[in-house]
């Protein structure tokens, strides 16, 4: 090993200082639950973002086009060898679906519902949830390495569940790949499906921001047109 240059040592010292000064836990805008007022004041649209983990296949939900450690802590309780707590590494979380709702109440209800259903599957009705999962020869959840495809399938089912349960009409689901949607028989009139435009995963955060802006603009337009109608 070649001896470290003085400049390299200084850089290293600087980096360690930086790391110690502030613990990086993800996008700060994603920290904490957002009420309707929060969403409006932060210029966020009535959306829910579903991120899939490329490594384990687990799905994380967010009201905001980014993830924070708190959301992971909230959504992945009761970890075990089959359902480990995923890392917050940005490069492993890829957008799976963007759900655009009719209004902020619906959006918040959907987010809350999804998080609740996650709790049900992990904690309250653990056994029932496990029974529905596809198993391998040994009786464990089917895996290839650490990847378990069943989690993303469960997330899609949960999304379907809350839309039907709460009758969230006029939702629009933008899928990263329409393949994930599954058979049409599961989905009703309440939902319109579409696919996300093709994007470079390197610039995912910018891309999702654009999606947010677009949805916000649409929401504003629709609201204005409604207001003019009523008037």
């Amino acid at each position: 090993m070649a001896p470290m240059l003085r400049s390299a040592k200084k850089m290293r010292k600087h980096l360690i200082e930086q790391l110690k000064s502030r613990k990086v836990e993800g996008a700060r805008i994603a920290k904490g639950f957002k009420t309707q007022e929060d969403l409006i004041s932060l210029n966020l649209a009535p959306q829910v973002f579903l991120f899939k983990n490329l490594f384990s296949g687990q799905v994380a939900y967010s009201q905001v086009p980014a993830l924070h450690q708190d959301q992971i802590d909230e959504q992945f309780t009761r970890p075990n060898w089959e359902n480990r707590k995923p890392s917050r590494r940005d490069d492993l979380w890829r957008i799976m679906c963007v759900a655009n709702f009719n209004n902020y109440e619906y959006a918040i209800a959907a987010y809350q519902g999804l998080v609740d259903l996650r709790r049900v599957r992990d904690v309250v009705q653990k056994k029932e949830a496990n029974e529905m999962r596809y198993k391998n020869d040994e009786g464990n959840i089917w895996y290839s390495g650490q990847y378990r495809p069943i989690y993303s399938q469960e997330a899609v089912a949960d999304l379907n569940h809350i839309i039907e349960e709460f009758e969230l009409e006029n939702t629009e689901l933008l899928w990263e790949n329409l393949w994930r949607k599954g058979d049409d028989k599961y989905w009703s009139d309440l939902v319109q499906h579409d696919s996300l435009p093709p994007f470079n995963p390197k610039y995912q955060s910018a891309f999702l921001d654009e999606i947010r802006e677009k949805a916000l603009a649409e929401f504003q337009n629709a609201r204005d047109s409604e207001i003019t109608e009523t008037m």
Binding site: A109, L117, F166, R180
Partner: peptide
């Protein structure tokens, strides 16, 4: 009257996972 929260988590009937299908494209 519109319900937007789950009341009792124990009474929720979980749905089976939706499998992806190639027929969608």
């Amino acid at each position: 009257a519109r319900k937007l929260r789950f009341e009792s988590l124990k009474d929720i009937k979980l749905r089976a996972p939706i499998l992806p299908t190639h027929k969608n494209f």
